[in-house]
Design a protein around this nucleic acid. Structure first.
Length: 837
RNA sequence: GCCGGGAUGGCGGAACUGGCAGACGCAGCGGACUCAAAAUCCGCCGACCCUUGCGGUCAUGGGGGUUCGACCCCCCCUCCCGGCACCA
């Protein structure tokens, strides 16, 4: 009876026990702690594995558990492979929810945030993630955010920070400005139902566009990134190569610059279209009240379309201004229109309209009976006259004077040369990427280190006055404007330049600033004189493996690439890119939907851990689907993994006594060959997966298969027919293979096998190809590609032997009766196919 | 519209480089143990057909093709997910 009880797997006992031991000695779970960023363990190769840091909402969700289970498995594996692993964790701790909580519960944001961090850290420790807490980073603390301010000032010095009044995205729910990247289909990224408004505000911008080319080129080199993410970033940067051409305006001094990718069609331009907000429109409308009214209407339509997110669906609508533009190539006068589909903030805010060779211009010209003139003919002179609009680039120029007969490439070049020579234009590149607006009219963020002086204008806070501390005693209310503006002690300062009274900037930084460089701080988290020691960062960077959700493919991942390039140019680091390999894991789904409170399908990690244990929970998160795909959470599946772990526990405990003390190894004497073979095949499979494929679901499946094989040998084990060194190897290696996936189980069983040290200190097992090799294999025999029989042959049998065996097979013989074998295809170790007439 | 990724049993998913489709797990069914249940262990488990066999046929979203052989490669189509979009 007592014995029976001893064999019961109870994670509720085992897991807290190890948790305590690990807490007492971090070296047991986090190898080679880096001690405030100084690289330790010289001689070992470094490996930096990182999961995206969470926002401290107070509750870990399954997406986190999945993300961290993947990263932790990798980190543990790399420790066992002998790497010096940096595996840190931190908190993206600034942000709006803290302020909302403050309003709701009257809790100070700092307190709310820090207690959430404590709660989530407890959860992480309970699940057993092996982070090096000595390097923990919390972005809302002054020792971190002072470096945001420091970077801001460095960028200011380099002209990468500027202030401008502009149309900005305003979320009425957040009461703050949003970056373009935070607007999704015209809605706030945090409030899916809230339309983003356009407001005119003075804002701080980071000149990310100065790095547009660099960011784009860098993508080509990031071959360790998913193609999907690279494509998304390419789209977002949106490079478009073309030309700019300046049109004159009849009887006026102004000119109109247009951007076009089809300068070769410019002789076909039959109108010029301006964005409703184009400066010239305002000038022309000032003298024309009719036009003014119509333009206001266009503006309204555009705004509405932009806000509802379907800019592409807007009904094309335009009004003629009554003025004419002069085509600089031929002096032709073409009418100037204002159109609701022309955008001020792309290109030059003005286009030339070539209806014969552009779908959109064609539609517009048809609607308003604007002339349509063909200037491109098919390259093939015998081709029929094409239907309009004829938009292909594979044509030759016609009806264009001196340019006639030129194919696309040459035409573009010639047109640009002429424009440049005559001074009315030339090649031009336009990006979709906009500068990064970082001002937020919020309290809970990094104060922008700038001072407004009536005499000296904008004055940066001197470095020796950093950090600009976020005041803690503050009343958070729902009312608009920057909360910091209502704290006189904060706002009223003396100007660092003239010593006169001045006002402190009251906006705070977008929280994406915090996460743009946090992973550098991990390498030297306690540094109080600089953001990090360059030599230390250089040791660890680039990050070898970054793991997180694809939802950050654009925002966080483009900002942090930008930040890295700026830091490189400042001379802090030498790497061009922060992340060598990126992995984007799939979402966790339940009942066909993403887990969310509103859907009521949230599964709490705490519940799972309480019911099945941390090992089963995290192992299920790896087993249920390949990590890059969405995962359908099924609690029965967690129960299944839990049953599997029980089987592991029972079989190891049952025979631990046989194994204890024995030196692992295959034996001269007989016994356990089949199990050893399966074991070494399993080692090879899992090792290979860690090296690239990352199909951890099949790794877990492979361990299950191996355990099934072991269980099949239960009778032999019970009878003592397998030599002790073999038993030791069979059981001990099983524990090592489990270590990355089920660390509690591994630690417990490792000790039960009589081992003293941490299982993570043990070297990762190596597959012995001799032991893994099959002696006899099954080979399918096909006739005309259809399976007919399966033969058994020696694993190293040559083609002749296999062919002979196939032809000798009874089933094959009966099928071949009276027929002629025309050809025999033998693929050694794979198949035999008999081609029969 | 453009770009990227998918579609395999009742379900989650396997299948290395073109070579036995359905590993592993869940659910289900049958059995052992038990007074009984739970737990555990053993077996079965794609569909259809018949002459019930160590049988046959069909099956990886649909249609074609390449090949001795295709879930895998090529062409066309449908649907689903994600990104971009009057971007000049």
């Amino acid at each position: 009876m007592a014995e029976e009880k001893e064999l019961r797997y109870d994670p509720a006992v085992i897991e807290p026990k190890w948790q305590q031991r690990w807490a007492a000695d971090p070296a047991l779970y986090a190898a080679d702690p880096i001690d405030s960023g100084k690289p330790a363990a010289a001689g070992k190769p470094k490996y930096y594995v990182l999961e995206m840091l969470p926002y401290p909402s107070g509750q870990l969700h399954m997406g986190h558990v999945r993300n961290y289970s993947i990263g932790d498995a990798l980190a543990r594996h790399m420790w066992m492979r002998g790497y010096n692993v940096l595996h840190p964790m931190g908190w993206d701790a600034f942000g709006l929810p803290a302020e909302n909580a403050a309003i709701k519960n009257n809790t100070p944001p700092r307190l709310w945030t820090l207690s959430n961090i404590a709660a989530m850290k407890r959860q992480m420790l309970r699940i057993g993630f092996g982070y090096d807490w000595a390097t923990e980073v919390t972005t809302c603390l002054p020792d971190y955010y002072r470096w945001n301010q420091w970077f801001f000032l460095r960028m200011y010095e380099r002209g990468l920070v500027y202030r401008k009044k502009s149309k900005v995205n305003w979320c009425p729910e957040c009461c703050t400005v949003l970056a373009n990247e935070q607007v999704i289909d015209g809605h706030c990224w945090r409030h899916e139902d809230t339309l983003v408004e356009q407001r005119d505000l003075e804002q701080w911008f980071l000149r990310i566009t100065a790095y547009a080319e660099d960011l784009l080129d860098g993508l080509d080199k990031l071959d360790g990134w998913p193609e999907k993410v690279r494509t998304m970033q390419r789209n977002w940067i949106g490079k478009s190569e073309g030309a700019e051409v300046e049109f004159g305006v009849e009887n006026r001094s102004e000119t109109i610059r247009v951007f076009t990718t089809r300068i070769d069609t410019i002789f076909g331009a039959t109108s010029v279209q301006l964005a409703p907000e184009h400066p010239l429109v305002a000038t022309l409308a000032a003298a024309d009240s009719g036009l003014r009214k119509q333009v206001a209407e266009l503006l309204g339509e555009q705004k509405k379309a932009r806000e509802s997110g379907d800019v592409g669906e807007i009904e094309k609508h335009g009004v003629p201004t009554g003025h004419f533009a002069i085509n600089p190539y031929n002096g032709e006068l073409v009418p100037i229109w204002v159109a609701n589909y022309v955008l001020l903030d792309y290109g030059t805010g003005a286009i030339m309209s070539v209806p014969a060779h552009d779908d959109r211009d064609f539609e517009f010209a048809k609607k308003y009976a604007i002339p349509i003139r063909r200037v491109i003919a098919p390259a093939d002179p015998n081709a029929e006259e094409p239907e309009l609009p004829f938009t292909t680039k594979d044509g030759v120029v016609i009806n264009s004077g001196e340019f006639n007969g030129l194919p696309y490439q040459q035409a573009v070049k010639r047109f640009q040369e002429v424009a440049a020579r005559k001074g009315f234009g030339g090649p031009s590149i336009t990006f979709r990427l906009k500068d990064w607006g970082v001002s937020r009219q919020r309290y809970w963020g990094t104060p922008i280190p700038m001072i407004h002086c009536e005499r000296d204008g904008i004055v940066p806070v001197p470095d020796d006055q950093l950090p600009v501390i976020l005041p803690e005693q503050i009343e958070i209310t729902q009312q608009g404007g920057s909360p910091l503006g209502r704290v006189p002690e904060f706002v009223n300062v003396t100007c660092p330049k003239c010593g006169g009274p001045a006002l402190r900037e009251t906006d705070t930084m977008d929280t994406f600033v915090d996460s743009s460089w946090y992973f550098y701080r991990y390498t030297d988290a306690k540094n109080s004189t600089q953001p990090f020691e360059p030599a230390v960062a250089q040791h660890w960077f680039p990050i070898d493996q970054y793991i997180g959700g694809v939802e950050h493919a654009i925002l966080h991942l483009i900002y942090s690439r930008f930040w890295t390039k700026v830091m490189r140019d400042i001379g802090l680091i030498t790497n061009d890119e922060p992340v060598r390999r990126l992995f984007t894991q799939g979402m966790v789904i339940k009942d066909g939907h993403k887990m969310s409170k509103s859907k009521g399908n949230v599964v709490s990690p705490d519940d799972m851990v309480a019911r099945y244990g941390a090992d089963a929970t995290r192992m299920y998160a790896l087993f249920a689907a390949p990590p890059d795909r969405d995962l359908d959470w099924q609690e029965d599946g967690v129960a299944g993994v839990s049953r599997f772990l029980s089987r592991v526990y029972r079989i190891v405990m049952k025979y631990a006594a046989q194994a204890r003390g024995a030196q692992a190894g295959s034996s001269q004497t007989e016994g356990g060959e089949a199990q050893l073979r399966k074991l070494h095949q399993t080692i090879a499979k899992i090792t290979l997966d860690f090296e690239g494929r990352w199909h951890f679901n099949t790794c877990v499946a492979a361990i299950m298969e191996y355990v099934n094989e072991l269980q099949g040998a239960d009778a032999q084990l019970a009878a003592g027919e397998i030599p002790a060194p073999v038993v030791r190897e069979l059981l001990g290696t099983l524990v090592l293979l489990l270590a990355p996936f089920a660390p509690y189980m591994a630690a417990e069983l490792w000790e039960e096998l009589g081992e003293q040290g941490a299982v993570l200190r043990a070297p990762w097992p190596r597959s012995n190809p001799e032991l893994a090799k099959e002696t006899e294999i099954e080979i399918p025999v096909q006739i005309n590609g259809k399976l007919v029989s399966v033969i058994r042959v020696a694993a190293d049998a040559d083609s002749e032997t296999i062919q002979a065996a196939a032809l000798a097979d009874e089933k094959v013989k009966s099928r071949l009766a009276g027929r002629t074998v025309a050809k025999v295809i033998v693929v050694a170790r794979k198949t035999v196919n008999l081609v029969v007439r």
